[in-house]
């Protein structure tokens, strides 16, 4: 049951880490560099969730950290604080008291994490099996890409179209769902930094906590 939103998150993360992907089709544009094992990517995001029938979008902002070793932290700071951690053992929400609640576990979650790892290593295969990937235009240094789920793929029932654009880093991802809802995620301030992770992020991962 959690597969649907796993796809959404997978795609988000895939684009968030887009700089890590060597893209032949982007030969004329800025090329993202892979994240090494001893590096991590961090930046800020703005998520505008447009819901059909609701007047205004649900707007949130925050920062994210993506580590090849540990996983992804999605930390919302506005309008309410909240943390979601994606790692091999599952997806967890972490409240202000540090209480972790599992949102998803099991095989699909593992596949999802595997997908992130594949993306981090510059392998498009995990998304290619679910999406038809096509470049739109590349007249400027920015690249544009459309992902259309294959009709019989499990992503097909959850997603209608995904578009993304960026340069050396991904800048914006738009996810359009069959319900006519759409999420627009804008990334900013992305940098690749060497490990170790800052303590406040490192402690959010289960293996970081163990240490």
């Amino acid at each position: 049951m959690i597969r649907g939103f796993l796809i959404l998150i997978t795609v988000c993360v895939a684009f968030a880490s887009f700089l890590a992907m060597p893209q032949p089709l982007l030969a004329e544009t800025a090329k993202p560099s892979p994240i090494a094992e001893n590096e991590y990517l961090r930046g800020t995001f703005e998520l505008a969730r447009h819901l059909n029938g609701f007047e205004k979008p649900l707007l949130s902002r925050g920062e994210f950290v993506l580590s090849p070793q540990h996983g992804l932290i999605w930390k919302t700071t506005f309008p309410f604080p909240g943390v979601t951690v994606f790692e091999e053992g599952g997806i967890f929400s972490v409240d202000q008291n540090g209480q972790r609640d599992a949102m998803a576990k099991g095989n699909e979650t593992r596949q999802f994490v595997t997908m992130i790892s594949s993306v981090l290593s510059g392998n498009w295969n995990p998304l290619e099996s679910q999406f038809n990937i096509s470049e739109s235009t590349a007249k400027t240094k920015e690249w544009n890409i459309n992902l259309t789920p294959y009709p019989n793929s499990f992503a097909g029932s959850q997603i209608e179209l995904i578009t993304a654009q960026g340069n050396a880093f991904v800048q914006e991802v738009v996810i359009i769902k069959p319900s006519s809802d759409q999420d627009i995620i804008t990334f900013d301030g992305q940098t690749i930094e060497p490990v170790p992770l800052p303590t406040e992020f490192n402690d959010l991962f289960s293996d970081g906590r163990a240490k």
Partner: peptide
Amino acid sequence: LYSPASPFTSA
């Protein structure tokens, strides 16, 4: 509502 891993839709 604000988590990227939310399964809800407008409906």
